[in-house]
């Protein structure tokens, strides 16, 4: 049995929760809702977590966040992850909504973002974003307009893959290592490359379970 499962996480006066033996001196924010038997490796995963939504993050039963998985949030943004997810070393950047189903798997260096962070803005707007940030104590990232990301059940994201704003990934799909994906990916697709292309389709064998 892993340590750091929710049963052993104590609430503190501020409403956040301290993970026993955490190497990082932080808290799991009070608006992160954990199902039964959720594992979180460290509160380091939440050091850029600024959403003040009541349900800023939901992690389903028996999900785990390992090896510096990191959740960057702001404003009223919400991240929802289903049951039995394995989130390993993945950065989720959420400024509006990221929704992930059950049986999710993602690997180190993967990034799932609903925000392009000014990359699509004209130069003067990018400048203003950076100049404004330097005046705030929190130094949140240069967020711009968001496009929510949806990932259905049983999706596997390979290491270093990039899921861009507005992406919808259908059930059972695999996103290959280092791919860059956007738009709508139909269910049971295997996608790879930059830009990501569908290489083949998988047998929907999991539907019978």
């Amino acid at each position: 049995m892993k340590e750091n499962i929710t049963q052993s996480v104590e609430p503190t006066g501020s409403g956040g929760r301290k993970i026993p033996y955490d190497w990082f001196d932080g808290l799991i924010p009070s608006n992160v809702h954990l199902g039964d038997n959720v594992y979180i490796a460290s509160s380091y995963e939440f050091d850029m977590f600024f959403s003040d939504s009541n349900d800023a993050m939901v992690l389903g039963d028996a999900s785990g966040c390992y090896d510096q998985a990191t959740f960057v949030t702001t404003g009223k943004s919400r991240i929802s992850v289903g049951r039995y997810a394995i989130v390993q070393g993945t950065m989720m950047i959420c400024t509006e909504k990221i929704t992930i189903g059950d049986y999710f798997m993602s690997s180190w260096g993967a990034i799932i973002t609903d925000n392009y962070m000014g990359g699509n803005l004209p130069l003067h707007a990018r400048r203003a974003l950076l100049e404004n940030i330097s005046r705030s104590p929190e130094r949140q990232m240069p967020f711009s307009e968001a496009a929510p990301v949806t990932i259905e059940d049983n999706v596997w994201i390979g290491f270093g893959a990039l899921v861009l704003p507005g992406t919808c990934i259908g059930r059972g799909s695999i996103i290959g290592c280092k791919s860059v994906v956007s738009g709508v990916i139909p269910e049971y697709s295997v996608v790879a490359g930059n830009p990501g292309k569908i290489l083949r389709k998988l047998d929907p064998s999991d539907i019978r379970h």
Partner: peptide, 8 residues
Amino acid sequence: SRVFIAVG
């Protein structure tokens, strides 16, 4: 100046 370098 005013260079943004995203995650990763």
